[in-house]
Design a protein around this nucleic acid. Structure first.
Lengths: 202, 202, 202, 202
DNA sequence: AATGAATGAGGCTTCATTCAT
DNA sequence: GATGAATGAAGCCTCATTCAT
């Protein structure tokens, strides 16, 4: 169809802009990022950005949400394929580590955002928070079931789910920092091992 | 001495300003915070801020560093008092949870900063990073010694130290969010238990 | 002829655009009106406007002039049909009141324009001014003749012509405002009566 | 008092800015006027404008209202001093003509505004409208009383009040245009004569 | 001929910093 | 030492106009 062609171009532009926005927001943060730079990176004029998104904030939100939804979907899928609790936890850790290894800009953006929102106040991106909650909740359910089946100790599952979530973030951040020399697989194994066994003997 | 009196007043002003800055930066983040608001909260005129600090960035850095140094000193002291590895780890967790319970503004500021710096690039506050490293290093040494003494399993101690550090952050953040209904002592116990034993049986 | 057909279509488009422009300019004023809105109201694409008029300013001028010419022609015709001075003055008032009753958008546009041009400086629409002068001049001639024929008092005719012109505007504006509950005929009668007899006894 | 000095300077600045704003708004109209130009004319930096007024719109409103209030006060005072109806009407016309002779910029601004608001829609300056109503109302009361006392014919007083108001505007505008060679006193006389006696004999 | 995506100049506003008092 | 009025650079966003399709 004639329509389709235009739509394709338009979608392409939207994606280009979003991609540029990722990079700039990840590099500079929301406030320091300028529409001028995003436009330059996207290879379009400033005004063009506004043909695709109504405001800087909206680009930011869209950029953030896009990957948040992606990673969430991947995680859910991976958990679905895993059978036992330990497999599921491993799948969770692995999925996120692999995803962020490929999408560093998104990780940087969301870390900033978590920081910015520092405990829930930030003005933007409720969705990020919701998606975090979503992920924690999924993990929580995995843990609850595992407790019922005596696969793991009877612990405060929601708190533990958060801990696993943040441990994963912690490892990604160290990898991004370059502080981690281990292979990705080693880090996955390490994170799971630590989670599952703790650090103490027995 | 005449000098001393002035110095005392000057120090007092610096502290007042820093205290105001904390609150404002924690509430708004670096970019959204304005010198006008800091001055208002501090009860001085805008120009006065520049008599004590050369720039907004410097106030920010000073505010950040002050507490980072405080919490570091407290942590080191607490670790010094503890004897066994498990006591030391517990002391680490407890010190930080208690400190941040009292200094929420500092926690917010540093979370933002970690996010902002997203993996080491930020322009500000190298010191925060150094202090983080310092804390992780101290923990690392505790763990290394514990491994040598067979108090804990032979694990990658530095990675584990980071994990403990971030687990602690994770819990503080949830407490700030109000998502945590447990008492502070319960959370300390939970964090240590999780760290020490992991979530698996045995 | 093949040509004629195209011309007809083209003329039709021009008229459609002008009509849309009226409404938008009257509603929003020159600066607040956007080419986008005019295009939308006209039911064409933005680019199309530029096929028929070289610029926003030109559309504005054309819109303004169109009706100005119309009203002028109507006025002249009406004055031509009237015989005595009092009939002519009445015809003048009546023609304009009736015309603007039907073409409120034009009245609004020209009021804005008179205001904008505030005393002759505005960058647009010299023509409006010329047409105003034209109308005042015609009235002036009516009054001059009437003075010569002793139909009216010997007064400064040009100033009186302006006064009659503006009294008419004044009444139209009040009608548009809805402040006037009188019928159109009453208002015509009132305006003429006031002009002719003044407010004093005798 | 120490305070007074600053206050005086501040008031002076406000007045300077308002004065510059008058000129620029009168010259260009609201939309075409730029803060940059107002600042330049006022001899201050752009940012300084915002120390005295919160926005462009507010400067505009303040400029408009200031003189509107002035002229209203003058008019009321003049009417108060006059005794008979004819004196009052003459006083009304004279006050406004004299005021606007001195404050051409205000007249231009308000003409634009009347135009812009074209029949009550404009987004700004309700006050101008209210002040117009106020003036018309005062005149209306003068006329009503005159009718009761048989000083003038029994006419629709409110409509006549509007007519006098607009006749005055009409003459001011012609004077500003330079189209009027008569002296101010002649114009005052002319306007009153026309109002009082109309143009017809007897 | 018609379209509408793309452009980029230009406007309002904010705010860190300076400096005369 | 303290003040806060003044500055002006810089950012977001709008919209008239162009031009490839």
């Amino acid at each position: 169809m004639a329509r389709t062609k235009k739509d394709v171009v338009a979608e392409f532009r939207r994606a280009e802009i979003l991609d540029a926005a990722y990079r700039v927001f990840a590099e500079r943060g929301f406030e320091q990022a300028t529409m001028a730079e995003i436009a330059a990176v996207a290879g379009v004029a400033k005004g063009t950005l506004y043909l695709y998104y109504p405001s800087k904030q909206d680009i930011y939100d869209a950029a953030l949400r896009q990957s948040a939804v992606d990673v969430d979907a991947l995680t859910q899928a991976a958990l679905g394929r895993a059978r036992t609790a330990s497999e599921k936890i491993q799948a969770f850790i692995e999925t996120k580590l692999r995803y962020f290894e490929e999408h560093r800009d998104f990780f940087r953006m969301s870390e900033r955002e978590f920081g910015d929102r520092a405990c829930g106040r930030g003005p933007h991106a409720k969705h990020l928070d919701e998606l975090r909650l979503e992920q924690v909740k999924v993990l929580d359910q995995v843990l609850q079931q595992a407790v019922r089946r005596k696969a793991i100790r009877p612990i405060r599952t929601e708190a533990a789910a958060s801990a696993i979530f943040d441990l994963t973030r912690s490892i990604v951040m160290q990898r991004l920092r370059g502080a981690r020399k281990a292979t990705l697989d080693d880090d996955i194994g390490f994170a799971f091992d630590l989670t599952w066994k703790g650090i103490g003997y027995r």
